[in-house]
């Protein structure tokens, strides 16, 4: 198929960006979206132009690096996937595809489609961990009884890959699905309960400090999340913070 691509080009974080049109031809419907981008970049390199910078790593939906906003949706027009798992069969011959970086004040553009998501890492560092002694005397985790429901819900929350699609798709650029998942993952388990109070307070404080917006419960994040993280995690985080504050 032959496609017209409208891509955000921005030289560096301090330059002003703009949308630039490109044509790609003979794209196979079996290609992934990133392979299509590779074809475009080869074409650009062959004509002496600067290739389009975009984030990618594992290309199997686990690392959370690929971060494009395709035709008005984070990771494009499919559900439960990252951009590397988006296939060209979702598009038709002759389509115009708009490709933009994830937008949020807390995710500044580094170059073209690459954004700086270290704000997520700083939130994680503020409390997304448990303090255990790993000197060799660690207790076997299976010796602590945990209900099947809690274990399942904690595991569901832990599937968050921190890609930032929730922030990119949120009309308020809120990070509450991400932080809700991280808070829930530990709050549901006995090992995480010990530091639950400080964790939720510190992580929410860091989230606010990074300049993310306020959640208005539109639910867009839950729909666009490649791992299907539920809004229930945000409600749990709200409960945790209320509990921690009284």
């Amino acid at each position: 198929m032959n496609l017209t691509l409208k891509i955000w080009r921005q030289k560096d974080s301090s330059s002003k960006g703009q949308m630039v049109d490109y044509k790609v031809t003979d794209i196979s419907e079996h290609m992934s979206f990133l392979e299509m981008m590779d074809v475009l970049n080869e074409q650009l390199v062959n004509t002496g132009e600067e290739p389009v910078a975009f984030d990618h790593d594992c290309r199997e939906g686990i690392c959370g690096m690929c971060s494009m906003y395709i035709n008005g949706e984070a990771h494009g027009p499919d559900r439960g996937i990252t951009t590397c798992q988006l296939h060209m069969r979702m598009f038709k011959d002759g389509d115009t595809i708009t490709i933009e970086p994830f937008r949020a004040a807390a995710f500044p553009v580094i170059k073209d489609l690459v954004v700086d998501r270290t704000s997520f890492e700083r939130i994680q560092q503020a409390g997304g961990f448990i303090s255990v002694n790993t000197s060799g005397n660690t207790q076997d985790a299976n010796s602590i009884p945990i209900s099947k429901i809690a274990a399942d819900e904690a595991m569901d929350a832990a599937t968050c890959i921190g890609c930032g699609a929730c922030v990119a798709t949120c009309k308020n650029s809120s990070a509450m699905l991400f932080v809700g998942a991280k808070v829930s993952q530990y709050a549901l388990l006995p090992q995480g309960r010990v530091e639950a109070t400080e964790r939720v307070q510190n992580m929410v404080a860091q989230m606010d400090l990074e300049g993310f917006g306020n959640c208005t419960n539109t639910g867009a994040c839950e729909v666009e999340c490649p791992k299907g993280i539920s809004l229930d995690n945000i409600a749990r985080m709200n409960r945790e913070l209320m509990k921690a504050s009284v």
Binding site: K6, W8, G17, M19, Y69, N71, G72, E73, P77, T98, E100, R103, A104, A105, A106, F107, P108, V109, T169, K171, N172, S173, S174, G211, F212, G213, N214, T216, N217, T218, G219, A220, V223, E224
Partner: peptide, 25 residues
């Protein structure tokens, strides 16, 4: 106002209807 500030640059194309209700947006 705070949420607008958190947005940064607006998207050239944003398909809000794909994932949320008109009322919520």
């Amino acid at each position: 106002l705070k949420n607008k500030k958190a947005n940064g640059v607006n998207y050239a194309k944003n398909n809000g209807a794909a994932n949320s209700s008109w009322m919520s947006r």
